[in-house]
Amino acid sequence: MIVKILGSGCKNCETLADNTKVALKETGLDAEIIKVTDFQEIMAYGVMSTPALVIDEKVVSFGKVLKPKEIVQILDKVR
């Protein structure tokens, strides 16, 4: 599983990345976290509000700093 955090590197994106790490640990899923900061790449996902969370190339959330609990729910759904 590949998890991407889209965002220009502001504080919100950092928080989302940290929360994602916590959620991944909790679910015990093996995933690689990639931070995407390049606007051109972010654009390609159709995202206008950052930070956004992408799991296996699918945008699952945008414009929100998800809490670990919410990320766990999303992970449960997609796996």
Binding site: S8, F39, V47, M48, T50
Partner: peptide
């Protein structure tokens, strides 16, 4: 519209695109 300065660029791109 909810807005913070760090999201102004993706927003600009989204609107213009």
């Amino acid at each position: 519209t909810p807005f913070c300065s760090c999201s102004s660029i993706p927003l600009f791109i989204g609107f213009t695109n």
